[in-house]
Design a protein around this nucleic acid. Sequence first.
DNA 1: CCCTACACCTGGCGGC
DNA 2: TGCCGCCAGGTGTAGG
Length: 270
Amino acid sequence: MPELPEVESIVQELRPCLRGLVPIQIICHKEKFLHTEQPLPNVLNHPITDISRRGKLILVWTSPFVWLIHLKMTGQLWWQPSNAPLPPHTHLIVLFKNTHYQLRYADLRQFGSWQIVPKKNLSQVPFLQKLGPDALTIAPSILKQRLQNKHTAIKSLLLNQQCLAGLGNIYSDEALWLARIHPLTPAYVLNQIQIKRLALAIQKVLKYALKLGGTSIRSYIQPNGQKGLYQRHLHVYGKKGLPCQRCGTAIERTKICGRSSYFCPVCQQL
DNA sequence: CCCTACACCTGGCGGC
DNA sequence: TGCCGCCAGGTGTAGG
Ligand SMILES: [Zn+2]
């Protein structure tokens, strides 16, 4: 479900809710959703100091531990009073001291999970070790360096979190359309001007989507249950056969990296 | 190194 | 209606 704007949106909404709260219990019926080498009593009862994001990964900070939350395709975080009905497919519930509000994790396809690691071990988490620079603020010079000498299709590099962290299938297609670059273009053929256009397109699309609370097509929802609004502003994603909003040509779909890729065959030429 | 296929799961949709 | 295949915002692994 979520790419960078959705994850950042969730983090910003949860920050004032969670800061200072003391988690006292985690209810978990299926072990696969919660990975921790520590006994739960050790992990609990430390106040939450902050919540942050790297790429699509959410980090909840306490003084001895960090909780890593990856939503994958359909994970949702809900902030609800205990008497609110549980969202469908709820797998984890966190209870806090002195409030009846709960943090609830729902996940229809069950690909997401939580991992709790001691702060000192954070730098050894492979996913974090390998993560590239964050896409929200990617500078043209950094992007140029990441793409240097790569013969791979640009779309597949944009999807690769080790190259650039935060883009997924929707926003990579939208950014490539904005920058007028064909998704199959080998990265090394892009010139300075195209790379700059791409970096600025990535920033623009992510920031605008964040401002609108992300894209809600199927399952993405904010912790208060509201939908994002960016789906109204998509140019190519999911638009096969519809006219390009720049030139009127029908949008095409092809398979890259096993994912659907949408592009305008006229504005985005190989 | 880079690609593809598949694995992990559930559900919505269109076609017959 | 029912069944079937295809599709879905992510990532890790195996094999060529
Ligand atoms: Zn066009």
